[in-house]
Amino acid sequence: MLMDIRLPEMVGLTAARKIRELPRADAKEVPIIAMTANAFDDDRRKSEEAGMNGHLAKPIEPELLYSTLAGAVSPREKPDAEM
């Protein structure tokens, strides 16, 4: 999901945290990518701390969008149970 940081009713960072806290099996896994004009390192850090999987600053570069989306939806490796 692409999440704007400056939502009218709730800040996107708060929305992402609330999604991650939901009592659903997929709440921790659904990809959430910030799409925002906030482009500083501190903004990126806040997105990560809120549980977002990526941070894209506007104006969006198509290739960066595609690679970020691909990274967010690609199957994650599961740890080897024998290790």
Rank of each mutant, 00 (worst) to 15 (best):
A50F: 02
P23V: 03
D41C: 02
M35L: 15
L65I: 02
A27C: 09
N53T: 00
E29V: 08
E63D: 14
M3D: 05
E9D: 15
K46T: 09
E9A: 12
E82V: 10
P59S: 04
L65C: 05
L7Y: 08
N53I: 00
A34S: 12
T14Y: 03
L64T: 10
R44A: 09
S47C: 15
E63C: 05
P31Q: 01
D41V: 13
I60S: 06
L2S: 00
P62C: 07
F40N: 07
D26Q: 09
L22N: 10
I60C: 03
S47W: 00
L2Q: 01
I19N: 02
I5H: 01
V11Y: 08
E61G: 08
D43P: 02
A50I: 02
P23R: 09
V30M: 12
D41H: 13
T36P: 03
M1K: 08
V11T: 10
A70H: 10
L2V: 06
L2P: 01
A15K: 05
P75N: 13
I60K: 09
A27L: 03
A81Y: 09
M3F: 05
T14H: 10
R44C: 05
D41A: 15
L22Q: 15
E48I: 12
L69I: 15
E77Y: 07
A37S: 12
R6W: 07
T36H: 04
S74G: 08
D26S: 11
P62H: 09
D43N: 12
E77R: 13
L64F: 05
A57R: 11
N38Q: 13
V73K: 03
R45L: 12
G51L: 01
A15W: 04
E63S: 12
F40G: 08
I5C: 14
R6E: 14
A81R: 14
P8I: 04
M52W: 00
T68W: 02
R6V: 09
I32K: 00
R44Y: 06
I5M: 11
A50G: 08
T68I: 04
P23Y: 10
M1F: 10
K46A: 15
F40I: 09
H55I: 01
A72W: 00
L2F: 10
E29S: 13
E49C: 06
P59C: 03
R45S: 06
I60W: 03
G54Y: 00
V11D: 13
I33N: 01
E49N: 11
P59T: 06
M52C: 10
A16W: 01
N38V: 02
L64C: 07
A81V: 14
I33M: 02
T68L: 04
K28G: 14
P23I: 05
L2W: 03
T14W: 00
T36Y: 04
D42N: 14
M1R: 07
D42S: 15
A34E: 03
E29A: 09
E82N: 12
V73W: 04
F40K: 12
I33K: 01
I32A: 02
L2E: 02
G12I: 04
G12N: 04
M3N: 02
E21C: 08
G54R: 00
P31K: 01
A37K: 05
G71M: 05
M52D: 01
R76P: 01
E9Y: 11
T36F: 04
R17L: 06
K58R: 14
G12M: 04
N53Y: 00
K28I: 08
A70S: 15
M1V: 12
G54V: 00
E77V: 07
